[in-house]
Computed example of a mutant assay.
Amino acid sequence: MQLNFCQALLPALTTPPAPAGAPELVCWPGDAAPQRLTAADLRAQLVAAQASLVGQGVGPGQSVLVLLPLTSALLVALLALLGLGAVPVLPPAGATAAGLGRLMRGAGGDPPRG
Protein backbone atom coordinates (compact mmCIF):
# COMPACT_ATOMS: atom_id res chain seq x y z
CA MET A 1 0.00 0.00 0.00
CA GLN A 2 1.44 3.34 -1.07
CA LEU A 3 0.62 6.19 1.30
CA ASN A 4 2.24 9.05 -0.60
CA PHE A 5 -0.52 10.62 -2.70
CA CYS A 6 1.82 12.52 -5.00
CA GLN A 7 3.98 9.47 -5.73
CA ALA A 8 0.81 7.58 -6.67
CA LEU A 9 -0.43 10.47 -8.84
CA LEU A 10 2.73 11.29 -10.82
CA PRO A 11 2.91 8.05 -12.85
CA ALA A 12 -0.76 8.41 -13.76
CA LEU A 13 -0.03 11.80 -15.32
CA THR A 14 2.04 10.23 -18.09
CA THR A 15 0.92 6.60 -18.26
CA PRO A 16 -0.58 6.05 -20.72
CA PRO A 17 0.48 9.16 -22.62
CA ALA A 18 -2.41 11.48 -23.39
CA PRO A 19 -3.40 11.49 -27.05
CA ALA A 20 -3.15 14.71 -29.04
CA GLY A 21 -6.11 16.93 -28.28
CA ALA A 22 -6.71 15.31 -24.88
CA PRO A 23 -8.78 17.42 -22.49
CA GLU A 24 -7.00 19.72 -20.11
CA LEU A 25 -6.43 18.52 -16.59
CA VAL A 26 -6.76 21.72 -14.59
CA CYS A 27 -8.55 25.02 -15.04
CA TRP A 28 -7.74 27.04 -11.94
CA PRO A 29 -10.00 30.08 -11.55
CA GLY A 30 -7.77 31.89 -9.01
CA ASP A 31 -5.06 32.64 -11.57
CA ALA A 32 -5.05 36.09 -13.19
CA ALA A 33 -6.16 34.36 -16.38
CA PRO A 34 -7.66 30.85 -16.25
CA GLN A 35 -4.83 28.37 -16.63
CA ARG A 36 -5.34 25.04 -18.29
CA LEU A 37 -2.76 22.32 -17.76
CA THR A 38 -2.41 19.00 -19.47
CA ALA A 39 -1.13 16.06 -17.47
CA ALA A 40 2.29 16.56 -19.09
CA ASP A 41 2.29 20.28 -18.16
CA LEU A 42 1.46 19.47 -14.55
CA ARG A 43 4.12 16.76 -14.35
CA ALA A 44 6.77 19.12 -15.78
CA GLN A 45 5.89 21.79 -13.20
CA LEU A 46 5.96 19.22 -10.38
CA VAL A 47 9.37 17.91 -11.40
CA ALA A 48 10.76 21.46 -11.61
CA ALA A 49 9.24 22.42 -8.24
CA GLN A 50 10.61 19.31 -6.55
CA ALA A 51 14.09 19.96 -7.95
CA SER A 52 13.95 23.52 -6.61
CA LEU A 53 12.78 22.35 -3.19
CA VAL A 54 15.49 19.69 -2.97
CA GLY A 55 18.04 22.33 -3.97
CA GLN A 56 16.87 24.38 -0.99
CA GLY A 57 17.34 21.44 1.36
CA VAL A 58 13.71 20.30 1.71
CA GLY A 59 13.39 16.64 2.59
CA PRO A 60 11.06 14.02 4.06
CA GLY A 61 9.32 14.98 7.28
CA GLN A 62 10.29 18.65 7.04
CA SER A 63 7.52 21.20 7.62
CA VAL A 64 7.34 23.89 4.93
CA LEU A 65 5.21 27.02 5.26
CA VAL A 66 3.44 27.60 1.94
CA LEU A 67 2.61 31.26 1.28
CA LEU A 68 0.84 31.21 -2.07
CA PRO A 69 -2.57 32.47 -3.21
CA LEU A 70 -5.24 30.03 -4.37
CA THR A 71 -3.80 29.42 -7.82
CA SER A 72 -2.42 26.53 -9.83
CA ALA A 73 0.99 27.36 -8.28
CA LEU A 74 -0.44 26.35 -4.89
CA LEU A 75 -1.58 23.00 -6.30
CA VAL A 76 1.87 22.38 -7.78
CA ALA A 77 3.62 23.37 -4.53
CA LEU A 78 1.43 21.11 -2.40
CA LEU A 79 1.88 18.11 -4.69
CA ALA A 80 5.63 18.74 -4.96
CA LEU A 81 6.02 18.86 -1.17
CA LEU A 82 3.89 15.77 -0.67
CA GLY A 83 5.91 13.94 -3.31
CA LEU A 84 9.09 14.66 -1.36
CA GLY A 85 7.49 13.47 1.88
CA ALA A 86 7.62 16.99 3.30
CA VAL A 87 4.74 18.44 5.31
CA PRO A 88 3.04 21.46 3.73
CA VAL A 89 1.86 23.99 6.32
CA LEU A 90 -0.80 26.46 5.20
CA PRO A 91 -1.19 29.67 7.21
CA PRO A 92 -4.52 30.47 8.81
CA ALA A 93 -6.81 32.67 6.71
CA GLY A 94 -6.20 36.34 7.40
CA ALA A 95 -2.79 35.78 8.99
CA THR A 96 -0.77 38.97 9.40
CA ALA A 97 2.97 39.35 8.77
CA ALA A 98 3.52 39.29 12.54
CA GLY A 99 1.44 36.14 12.86
CA LEU A 100 3.42 34.46 10.08
CA GLY A 101 6.66 35.44 11.82
CA ARG A 102 5.44 33.79 15.04
CA LEU A 103 4.41 30.70 13.10
CA MET A 104 7.86 30.46 11.52
CA ARG A 105 9.72 31.02 14.81
CA GLY A 106 7.55 28.36 16.46
CA ALA A 107 8.57 25.94 13.74
CA GLY A 108 12.24 26.81 14.14
CA GLY A 109 12.53 28.64 10.82
CA ASP A 110 13.33 32.15 9.70
CA PRO A 111 10.47 34.65 9.45
CA PRO A 112 9.21 35.30 5.93
CA ARG A 113 10.73 38.19 4.01
CA GLY A 114 8.84 40.82 2.05
Rank of each mutant, 00 (worst) to 15 (best):
L42Q: 09
L82R: 02
P19L: 12
P88K: 05
P19S: 09
A80G: 10
P29C: 14
Q62T: 10
Q56P: 01
G106D: 09
P34R: 06
T38V: 10
D41T: 01
L74Q: 09
L46H: 06
Q62W: 06
A49C: 09
D41P: 00
G59K: 09
P111M: 05
M1H: 13
A40Q: 09
G108M: 04
L81D: 03
Q45M: 15
R43L: 14
A40G: 01
T15Q: 11
L68C: 14
G106I: 05
Q62A: 12
R113G: 08
A93S: 04
L100G: 05
L100R: 08
R105P: 03
P19V: 03
A18S: 11
Q2S: 06
P111Y: 01
A93C: 02
A33G: 10
A40S: 12
A12F: 05
A97N: 01
G61V: 02
Q62H: 14
L75Y: 13
L70C: 13
S63Q: 15
C27D: 15
S52D: 15
A39I: 02
A44W: 02
L67P: 06
T14G: 00
A32K: 14
L100N: 00
Q7A: 15
Q7R: 15
L65G: 00
A49T: 04
G83K: 00
A48G: 05
L81H: 14
D41K: 03
L79M: 13
A20E: 13
A39T: 06
M1Q: 12
A97E: 05
G85E: 01
V54T: 12
V66P: 05
S63G: 11
L68K: 10
L3V: 02
M104S: 11
L3R: 14
Q2H: 05
L42D: 10
A8C: 15
M104Q: 08
R102C: 04
N4A: 11
L67Q: 04
R113H: 07
R113T: 00
P88G: 03
A73C: 03
L74G: 01
A18Q: 12
A32F: 06
L53E: 06
D41S: 08
T71Q: 14
P29Q: 13
S63T: 11
A12P: 01
P92C: 12
L9W: 10
V64T: 01
A49D: 04
P60V: 02
L10F: 14
P91L: 03
L10I: 11
A48F: 02
R113A: 02
R43M: 03
T14A: 13
P16A: 00
A32S: 12
A39C: 13
L37H: 12
Q50S: 01
L65V: 04
L65C: 03
L74P: 09
